[in-house]
Design a protein around this nucleic acid. Structure first.
Lengths: 145, 145
DNA sequence: TTGCGTGCAAAGGTTTTGCATGGCA
DNA sequence: TGCCATGCAAAACCTTTGCACGCAA
């Protein structure tokens, strides 16, 4: 893969910095614009989208689709493989993404390939559900009724 | 569940019929409009969206988000549980969706809940990859080079 | 006749594109 | 200096909403 880095610009740093300060979270284009505004730098939205595209092609970040399907959001990649070697669990409620390093999941992968003749694209597959914190919150909300 | 069926209209039949003739596929609102056009019936797009919402609430179809995240697509539900009891495999290339009835997948489910403290929403989770037919096609295309 | 369903057009939000300008190397 | 990157505004795109009319029961 050919990383065609050309120029090093302040806007690119600013976007990456924004991800660093919000590590573990996935941000929409709007989130990033808002975050940068509070820090005094105003970046055109076209630039934000182009920068995100660029960083995604570089493998620095990964793109997800928000549940409502109306917005894209991005997140820093994890690990040397750039998140292509494990599955992701995404919480419906809070949006947190967990990187699933799991032996059984790898087995399922092989099983589906061998028995169901379907080659899975791990990087593209996301498990949706509820994370631990949001389960607890849901329970206490039930009790409050 | 309270099925508030009120009127029985030709447009509703037409949309459902469209799903029947494309069983196993996921259709976007645009797909449906185009398909109906070729059959001579023209339906306003607002009606299509409202009909899809209605059918979804009835549990007849399920809504998914297309990989690119720009479009919603819908598919006939399968089984008495309405597709909530199994995973789905979707082919990146041809778009076909396979309903995965698999013991190992169910085990993974329990494992993730027990060990990773994450409750998976099977109905919302889709495995992406390549189906058998498209794998074969990819191979023969390689050989043709 | 009643009120739900429909079609059209306009509005809504996110993302992309065109073009002139600015800035990095 | 030569390109690439940026910003602005307009366009494109999918989806939702408002409103008047038509049609099922």
């Amino acid at each position: 893969m050919n990383s065609t880095i050309t120029y090093h610009t302040g806007q690119r740093d600013a976007v990456l910095d924004c991800f660093s300060r919000n590590s573990g979270k996935q941000l929409t284009a709007g989130d990033i614009a808002a975050d940068l505004l509070t820090r005094g730098s105003r970046i055109g939205n076209a630039t934000i989208y182009r920068t995100l595209d660029y960083l995604e092609k570089e493998g620095r970040i990964r793109k997800f689709i928000d549940e409502n399907g109306r917005q894209a959001c991005w997140q820093l990649t994890v690990g040397s493989e750039g998140c292509s070697d494990h599955y992701h669990l995404k919480c419906h409620k809070c949006g947190t993404v967990v990187h699933l390093e799991c032996e059984l999941a790898a087995q399922l992968d092989e099983h589906i390939q061998a028995e169901h003749h379907f080659v899975i694209d791990r990087a593209a597959t996301i498990f949706y559900g509820l994370c631990e914190a949001c389960q607890a919150a849901a329970v206490s909300r039930e009790e409050a009724k």
